[in-house]
Amino acid sequence: MLNRGFLTLIRREIWRFLALYRQTIIPSLISSGLYIMVFGQSLGSRIGTIKEASYIQFIIPGLVMMSVINNSYQNSSSSIIQAKFLRFIEDLLITPLSGLEISFGYIIGGTVRGMINGMLVIFIGWLLTGFTVGNISLTLFIMLLVSWAFSALGVIVGVFAKTWDHIAMFTNFIFMPLTFLGGVFYSIDMLPPFWRALSQGNPLYWMINGMRYATLGIFDTSPFLSVMISAGFTLAFSSVSIFIFTKGYRLKP
């Protein structure tokens, strides 16, 4: 599978978002910096600490996840929908690359963008608040799982989407609410029992919980379960995206 064609596709996907860094890297950096300064500074002093972490540091793992999710999803979905609209996806479909290689090429491109953005948010957090990562390898592993999962979801949505609105719909109506309700800015221990139980049905909550454990060593619920749930989504979305490209579903009449 690690053939030259596959590596070329990965190179193309990474090259594309690096060339567009003003759209693909800088905005996420600015918005995360703003979240840290505005939410962290203004609310932080009033809230004090949560599970022995200062509020400003408590929100950073969630912001990392927000950035990872949005960027990995945006990369693969927008790359595919653009290739479909301008029909240059045909240049790829006629090559000797298999469906598995094409879907992984797009997924890896999105994953790399998600991870770069996630790491840059950590860097901004360190710069603005002195935030440090407790367990680097676990942090990278969770970041990789989540980034891969949402990049694979981006591939699926990119293939199915008929307009740019369909791509934005996921970001605005699904990721945004789920991220905000997933405990980026609060601990679910602060919620009444009903809302706490409901939050546990939100997959993004588990991903944020896992990242918080990996970086700060604090958690609301089982970090092991967090990793398992993230891995489950990674596996499920990857399988669907491979299936789509292998069968040519919605790509080949």
Partner: peptide, 10 residues
């Protein structure tokens, strides 16, 4: 160059 790469050319 990318298109050539997809076909396996170094």
């Amino acid at each position: 160059t990318l298109q050539a790469g997809y076909y396996g050319l170094d």
